[in-house]
């Protein structure tokens, strides 16, 4: 399981978390798992359908913001929740931009089978932070519930 922890004192009415990873790809996967676990107990989901997502952004924080926002978007627009993700994040050395290629595995929402949790309205910029701490990558994210 990718490492993340929920931060209780950051957003009283909402959900905040800190995710970590040895690489940007690991970090993005951990952060995605935190969003997924805010929405649903992933153990109750089956990986019956797959989605592929590609993004390019001028910097890593912008790329993470777009990536997590996609998970929220797909929940409403396509009625999909995801069990897990595979993420490859790379820096394009030609212009310093960052790219993401991700595969998400999950299934259409079924309240009868899925242990649903809180509906996330948005990924916010409040205290939003992505940084390299020694050899680890760390992100702090606040979700509006």
């Amino acid at each position: 399981m990718a490492p993340f922890r929920f931060l209780e004192e950051v957003a009283l009415a909402d959900a905040a978390f800190e995710a970590t990873g040895d690489t940007p790809s690991d970090l993005f996967q951990a952060a995605a798992q935190a969003v997924i676990e805010t929405l649903v107990n992933p153990a109750t989901l089956l990986p019956t359908c797959r989605k592929t997502i590609e993004h390019r952004a001028p910097d890593l924080p912008a790329l993470l913001f777009d990536w997590l926002s996609d998970i929220v978007y797909l929940k409403d627009a396509e009625g999909l929740l995801f069990k897990d993700t595979t993420v490859v994040v790379q820096c394009d050395r030609s212009d310093g931009s960052w790219t993401l290629h991700a595969t998400l595995a999950g299934e259409p929402i079924d309240p009868a089978r899925h242990e649903l949790r809180a509906d996330v309205k948005a990924v916010t910029k409040h205290l939003f932070d992505v940084r390299q701490d020694g050899r680890r990558w760390v992100a702090r994210v606040v979700l509006d519930i």
Binding site: Y73, D76, A77, E78, G79, L116, A118, D119, K121, I145
Partner: peptide, 13 residues
């Protein structure tokens, strides 16, 4: 796309 199917729903929170 996020809203077109949600008329008449409560949401959560």
């Amino acid at each position: 796309k996020r809203g077109i199917n949600q008329l008449g729903t409560l949401g959560s929170g």
